[in-house]
Design a binder for these strands. Structure first.
Length: 159
DNA sequence: GCCAACGTTGGC
DNA sequence: GCCAACGTTGGC
């Protein structure tokens, strides 16, 4: 079981949007960065991920989602009409991948970026690194537990 | 393979 | 809206 943090701009797609989706599930498409793609390819069904709101008045973690399908080709890359179109993507070499994510649990307490910076024990958390722009990053299990505790919710096995 | 120019991200 | 940081592109 691995832990992750995935960023989204809430104006475009928020944690609440995910909750309102049929089956609370959505393909996480449009990732066009190799490092983030590689992380997605190492995800396994059942992994847990923080939903991080970025580029908004209060950046931070709204809750937890579950990876419900491992990486498969992101077909939007092959769609000429898509904002995410990549002319180099083909059926033989899809180049870009996506996973499905499913809403898992809301944090009773939103964990803001400001709070993340204050919390002890989060040294090394990638999202706190200066200039970090990666939209998908791994989270250390110990960091995951600290943040969940702050959010007021713990996964089974961490209680 | 180097690196300057350019585009994007994301906090503030 | 600014700007630092960083990824990507493309000329050479």
């Amino acid at each position: 079981m691995n832990y992750w943090l995935m960023k989204s701009e809430p104006d475009v797609f928020s944690f609440e949007h995910l909750r309102q989706r049929p089956k609370k599930t959505e393909p996480w498409n449009g990732v066009r960065n190799y490092q983030a793609r590689n992380y997605m390819q190492s995800m396994e069904a059942g992994d847990l991920a923080f939903f991080y709101h970025s580029s908004c008045p209060e950046p931070g973690i709204a809750g937890v989602m579950r990876v419900s399908r491992a990486a498969y080709p992101d077909h939007t890359a092959q769609d000429a009409g898509s904002d995410y179109h990549d002319p180099k993507a083909t059926p033989e070499n899809p180049r870009w991948y996506m996973v499905n994510v499913t809403w898992h649990a809301a944090f009773p307490n939103f964990v803001s970026l400001e709070k993340l910076k204050e919390l002890p024990g989060l040294e090394g958390l990638v999202v706190l690194r200066r200039g970090n722009r990666l939209s998908i990053t791994p989270v250390d299990p110990a960091h995951f537990a600290i943040i969940c505790r702050e959010g007021g919710w713990l996964p089974d096995g961490m209680k």
